[in-house]
Design a protein around this nucleic acid. Sequence first.
DNA 1: GTCTATAGTTTGATAGAC
DNA 2: GTCTATCAAACTATAGAC
Lengths: 197, 197
Amino acid sequence: MYSAAMSTPERLISATRELLWERGYVGTSPRAIQRLAGAGQGSMYHHFSGKPELALAAIRSTADELRSSAAGVLDGPGTAYERIAAYLLRERDVLRGCPVGRLTMDPDVTADRALRAPVDETLDWLRGRLAEIVAEGTAGGGLRPGLDPQATAAAVAATVQGGYVLARASGSPEAFDTAVRGLLALLAPDDEPAPEA
Amino acid sequence: MYSAAMSTPERLISATRELLWERGYVGTSPRAIQRLAGAGQGSMYHHFSGKPELALAAIRSTADELRSSAAGVLDGPGTAYERIAAYLLRERDVLRGCPVGRLTMDPDVTADRALRAPVDETLDWLRGRLAEIVAEGTAGGGLRPGLDPQATAAAVAATVQGGYVLARASGSPEAFDTAVRGLLALLAPDDEPAPEA
DNA sequence: GTCTATAGTTTGATAGAC
DNA sequence: GTCTATCAAACTATAGAC
């Protein structure tokens, strides 16, 4: 249950975000949202037309936050390699998975253009931003030369998303870390060992 | 609805496999299973104690099949690079995602040791098998020298699982293919361009 | 082995009082 | 704006006839 400092709509959105992350769209019931938000049924249906509208607000909110957070790391200081490494190695709640990527497994989300849009846009933005950095890095930024920016960026984003899958399967974050380590080694040029990161 | 050539338990398991793949554990109801299998309620509960037991049988069946299928490619002819490429590039129904990896997003699956075990074992086997091939390949198998087998294998498996996520987000298989292309370029040695695959 | 009947719960939503 | 009452449908399962 959330702090009384938040407005009821805010609490409903936060609760929905949590539940969508953990249980997905199908697994998230209005009842559970109301319970977690500390709001009554009438209250929920007063502020939102129903589950889809509430889910849309929650997904947008989660997507915006993820994007800001990733941008913070990717826009930071350092060489291209260092910024990609910082992104790959940043603190994550690995076993919870990606709150945005997770939604792609939900048929009710992918089937609904409006619900899928924030998910698509976020991952698309991430790939684009990574591609820019790879493009910078192939000109002396600590990355292996000759890499295709788009393809390399997709591999980076995929490794993160897939790392979550491997980690959740085994019940341990280790597989995620191992995959990231493998990718970082592949990204570094031959002549120099992958920098400590 | 499945062919009458299959026994009722077989039809129930096939139907459950389909639905688990598409909708996950939470999104799969006994009712839907019965409908797809062309079996009555009494029939389902005669052969299986309930949804968990049926799901377990379905997950085991899917996991076994995936493992056999992957083994067929990974045990095939060719250099280490070629076999990994064959695995990454084999025909996939990309937008449907991985029927095993998908289950890791289901809290009811990860919370249940028995249900998670086949998922864990399958992805663990895959990583182990890929690591063996990487280990072979670093000794002249067309792979970039000096790679850590475990870490590289995890990156390969993660790229596939994450590629599904990217593809499903965008509604197109393209992102999967792009990520695979990026990874293959990273796996090849510097001096030779990635072989046509 | 398969069927229908039944049951208790939850889901997602609406109605109307306050 | 929030509450309680109510609803039709679906969920998961059991009982018992055939």
